[in-house]
Design a protein around this nucleic acid. Structure first.
Lengths: 250, 250
DNA sequence: CGCTATCTTGAAACGTGTCAATCACTGTGG
DNA sequence: CCACAGTGATTGACACGTTTCAAGATAGCG
């Protein structure tokens, strides 16, 4: 994977285009693709839809991991809290992504909505049964997991080696790509994450994120539309800055 | 997972105590545990042992992912290179860990030995066949993968939120734990990674790592034994500093 | 229309990076 | 067994980027 894809893949998360909830989505793509009709009926019998507002919690860090979730609408953030209260945003998730899948007893991180939206949840024990009955489903989870692992490693690279502006540029590009891959084709993209959220994701303070965004704006690379809209005017510049082929090193 | 386990779990990697290579290890633990004798014979037929010196490359970033490896002896580092030449150490691996498992066509990172050691390699196509024949094996890979993903997220947290000394403390503790879990019980642990390796893993320069280690030494927390031995004198202090319950925040 | 969140901007402090010199270990050859 | 060379580690001084703290500006909402 090219480092450019870093945050892109990261934000894609466990299950781009995947869909656990048959009621809520297409039967022809995503997780369910390898399954036959009987399997789909098995799954749809147990999944529940939940409607959520912005800032609602999907699950808390430390909660017993009873369910696996599919985000079918909206955007969420995954957060991890340290004993001393420091907090970090582990990643962002979009419609189609899977949340909270883990073999551990408890969720290692919390998940909260950034926008209003919808999730489908499936009982974890039910999923285990489905794994036994439909091995192809388990294979799909393994592929997604390895993919997300690669994305996490790219994010580690970014956090360890990228400057503030490089990180913000990579983030903006990947945000745009994530939304494009989900059909939002317009020049203006949603930016539901606050500067604080972005900062906690990128290992920066909210002020530093703001300064980077201001710098891009002053260079004519982006245009802001209110507090939750952003337009990429010079995508090339952002991609170049955010992909680690910076002119400074090389 | 407690943040304390951050680097520990990370360094554990895909497959603590796992063993792909039947010739080289026990049949009663690790990856092969869920398999029966027939499966083990299937696997042992195709795995090869390779002996490697320090600094030898196991595989390069970008290589076609033809094999999956088990590190049976020694310590290795995983590295990822950016287009501009910046490099980052993604993680360290110890005997028993699995290397290079990916559903992608190419290895996303390179692997090099830090010490002399031994690896077993299994043809990837063969592994795919084994997955089909022994679903339990695939399930084990999925569990390991999710575990490593959680570890990566903890590392992301550390890179984004920890100070230099906190990161180095966490690293030293996890290194000791990784070696203890593999049987090395003495007070002096191997530290085959150079300051530069550690720095690239923790997102720091080698000088900053050196300064942190010197600071710990001057506080009486550790004692160095040559260039590759380290003794933890005040483990509590290191654990406390490295687990994010620092007195500074809270 | 005004309140509140969020964002922006500035100035100063701090931590880490950079560059450079010296030191210490380790392995080699005398 | 010791001296030497080479690599890695340490330490210092300074520069730079990011954080911190503080003040205002802007957008969104009731």
């Amino acid at each position: 994977m090219h480092p450019l894809d870093s945050t892109r893949a990261l934000m894609d998360g466990l299950g781009s285009e995947a869909n656990l909830c048959v009621k809520c989505g297409s039967r022809s793509v995503g997780l369910c693709a390898p399954l036959d009709v009987a399997a789909l009926d098995d799954m749809s019998g147990e999944s529940e839809r939940l409607s959520l507002d912005a800032r609602d919690t999907i699950f808390h860090q430390g909660d017993t991991a009873r369910h696996v979730y599919t985000l079918t609408e909206g955007m969420a953030r995954l957060t991890r809290v340290l004993p001393d209260g420091r907090q970090s945003v582990i990643g962002f998730r979009f419609s189609g992504d899977i949340l909270g899948f883990t073999p551990a007893a408890e969720h290692a991180f919390g998940a909260e909505m950034l926008t209003r939206g919808m999730v489908c949840r499936l009982d974890r024990k039910r999923l285990e049964q489905l794994f036994r009955r439909y091995p192809a489903l388990e294979r799909r989870f393994l592929d997604l997991c390895v993919k997300e692992l690669a994305a996490s490693q790219d994010h580690i690279l970014a956090l360890g080696r990228f400057s503030a502006e490089e990180r913000v540029a990579a983030f903006l590009v990947s945000l745009a790509e994530a939304q494009e891959r989900r059909g939002r084709a317009g020049p203006v993209f949603d930016l539901p994450a606050t500067r604080a959220d972005i900062g906690e994701f990128l290992g920066l303070t909210l002020e530093t994120v703001s300064r980077a965004i201001s710098a891009f704006r002053k260079r004519g690379w982006i245009r802001l539309h209110g507090h939750s809209g952003i337009e990429l005017l010079d995508r090339e510049a952002l991609v170049s800055l955010g992909s680690g082929d910076g002119a400074d090193a090389a």
